[in-house]
């Protein structure tokens, strides 16, 4: 359990997946990927196994949110595990068509 800081980069302890925190509520939360707690990117970790119940995978460039939209992460590296917070899987954010700005 730890405070999720906006802008922080986390990596999976069981697959290649990495995410960046785009938005997070205050308070301690447990962010998991593939069923195991995610760790700060760059830290050494002994790779475990992806929990088959949390194996939907994350795709680079996709954003994942909790139900009430208070937490959002951006996948920055593909992974086989699915992301969850306090055991509740995050959902892939609907990609609205963005207006062209350039």
């Amino acid at each position: 359990m730890a405070e999720l800081k906006t802008g922080a980069r986390l990596k999976s302890a069981v697959c290649d997946g990495e995410v960046m925190i785009v938005l997070a509520p205050a308070g301690d939360l447990e962010e998991t990927c593939g069923g195991a707690a995610m760790v700060a990117a760059g830290s050494a970790v002994e790779k475990g196994q992806v929990d088959p119940d949390h194996a939907v995978g994350i795709r680079i460039g996709k954003r994942y949110v909790n139900e009430d939209g208070t937490l959002e992460v951006l996948c920055v590296k593909n992974g086989d595990g699915g992301v969850a917070v306090n055991g509740v899987p995050l959902l892939q954010k609907d990609t609205k068509k963005l207006p062209k700005t350039d």
Partner: peptide, 8 residues
């Protein structure tokens, strides 16, 4: 960028 561009 995140609010205005779709990745890839």
């Amino acid at each position: 960028i995140l609010s205005s561009v779709e990745f890839a």
